[in-house]
């Protein structure tokens, strides 16, 4: 049994496979509109700002801040019990988009809104590497 067996692993689609491939290469990939410069996440076939179809992939800095968070005291399923309590957070990337993740590698009680964080990567299976966040140093 691996530590992540039974978790809800993402199922990449043609639209998102570059993101998940990026995670496997320890790169946080987001989209940038070449028409208006808007960054967005999750991946889409249009720019949500100007509706252009010219959306390219770029590597994000991986830096962001905690926009909101909670400490989950009761895991969603048994597969998440080992790391309970764990932090669910919304991370606002320096580039603008917000994504959900876990804040790890610190005391859960120390997490707060406005906390600077950086991305780290953790392989959960042969195919899937997850983007997690930890306090910025």
């Amino acid at each position: 049994m691996g530590a992540h067996d039974g978790k809800f692993l993402p199922r990449p689609t043609p639209e998102t496979e570059i993101f998940w491939l990026g995670c496997r290469n320890n790169q946080l990939m987001i989209q940038r509109c070449t028409a208006c410069g808007h960054h967005q996440f999750y991946p889409r076939m249009l720019c949500t700002e100007c509706a252009s179809a010219q959306v390219d992939w770029v590597q994000a800095s991986g830096r962001g801040t905690v926009k909101s968070f909670t400490i989950v005291r009761r895991p969603v399923t048994e597969a998440y019990a080992a790391e309970t309590p764990y932090v669910i957070a919304l991370i606002e990337l320096d580039e603008g988009p917000t994504l959900m993740s876990n804040v790890t590698a610190c005391d859960v009680e120390k997490v707060h809104i406005g906390m600077p964080v950086t991305v780290s990567f953790e392989a959960w299976s042969d195919d899937i590497t997850m983007p997690l966040f930890r306090p910025a140093t």
């Binding site: 978790k7 909101s68 968070f69 009761r74 969603v76 998440y80 669910i88 959900m100 876990n102 809104i113």
Partner: peptide
């Protein structure tokens, strides 16, 4: 598990109360 985004939320283990806790924390802050 169906309450969150299959790829970009659910894998991290949010519960339904956790989703709403994010709103509570933001309102408190």
């Amino acid at each position: 598990s169906s309450a969150g985004h299959q790829q970009f939320e659910t894998p991290f283990g949010p519960t339904v109360p956790a989703f709403y806790a994010l709103i509570a924390q933001a309102h408190m802050a």
